[in-house]
Design a protein around this nucleic acid. Structure first.
Lengths: 157, 157
DNA sequence: ATAAAATAGTTTGAAATTCAAACTAAATTA
DNA sequence: TAATTTAGTTTGAATTTCAAACTATTTTAT
């Protein structure tokens, strides 16, 4: 029995969207990786790039906050932060209000990397919306809202 | 200067789509992982699940073909295939035409896992298209075609 | 026909990533 | 002010991954 609350999707359309989702995710990661290899940031892995992204330009989050965000243990985070500090992308900033806390920040080299990554994502989104006009946007946004609601549901149970 | 060939996206819309893409990808993986943990397939990791998916129900691909598809070395593949054979999800089938070749197949338990994973993806796509009608579909498909064209470009250079 | 080269997959040993648990230093609570 | 809690690091083990060496088989060249 099919779900009444949703469109009756043709089998081929289902396959199209599903394959596109899977393929796109996979390839974004791979392209990010290979762009890195060709860039001035060869000493950074894709996971380290995402750590730089999670640290953000100016928020100075705590180590624990970033670990939770990336679903990594604190130990793992310490170890990858060590690498990025050694390579000059990340700074540890001892918090003076609470001296147990380390806030994480990006160096200017780290911010450069952050912005390069951001630029790639801008292009990605731009291409996604290429040839659409204002009126089309709500529909695309709706699709993502749907998907995120579904993921909220799925994560709940 | 902005790119003339694309829509002039509002900053907030850009952020919406970008965050949605990043968030959705991240959460799909995490939910797949936690669904596995709660299912009868607790002994399978998310990477092993994707290996089962790559093997497919009935194609009997070669080891090398699957390794290339997943961008893994042959050695890595041998090792994860070993695990999945040991746990009863995957079979090695010696090719009688060319006895150097091993074709990979799923056991009935492997096919069960494959189908469970497929069902999750069906729900995902269904939710994505929830509330849309036939006329809306071309636009959503177009967005993905755009994105894949962009990724083709990006992978080329 | 047979020797040499190529190919498919496995084994090996090393590097990287990850985690949980023990640990240190600092802050909070009793 | 002693006990507890919290933030982050260290430690040791498990897992994943790779490249290179290896084995078995097939293809190519002589």
């Amino acid at each position: 029995m099919t779900d009444k609350a949703s469109v009756d999707i043709k089998r081929e359309d289902f396959k199209f969207i599903n394959d596109a989702l899977v393929d796109v995710f996979d390839r974004i990661l791979r392209i990010e990786e290979s762009e890195l290899r060709k860039s001035q940031f060869k000493d950074v892995t894709i996971n380290e790039l995402h750590l730089v992204h999670a640290i953000t330009l100016h928020e100075h989050k705590t180590t624990t906050a970033v670990a939770n965000e990336l679903h990594l243990s604190k130990g793992s985070l310490t170890s990858s932060v060590n690498t990025l500090v050694r390579r000059g992308y990340v700074m540890r900033i001892r918090n003076q209000q609470d001296r147990r806390v380390i806030n994480l920040g990006l160096t200017s080299k780290g911010r450069l990397l952050y912005r390069a990554h951001d630029a790639f994502h801008s292009q990605l989104v731009k291409s996604f919306l290429n040839g659409m006009d204002e009126d089309d946007l709500p529909l695309v946004k709706k699709a993502f809202v749907n998907l995120r609601n579904f993921l909220d549901e799925a994560a709940r149970d």
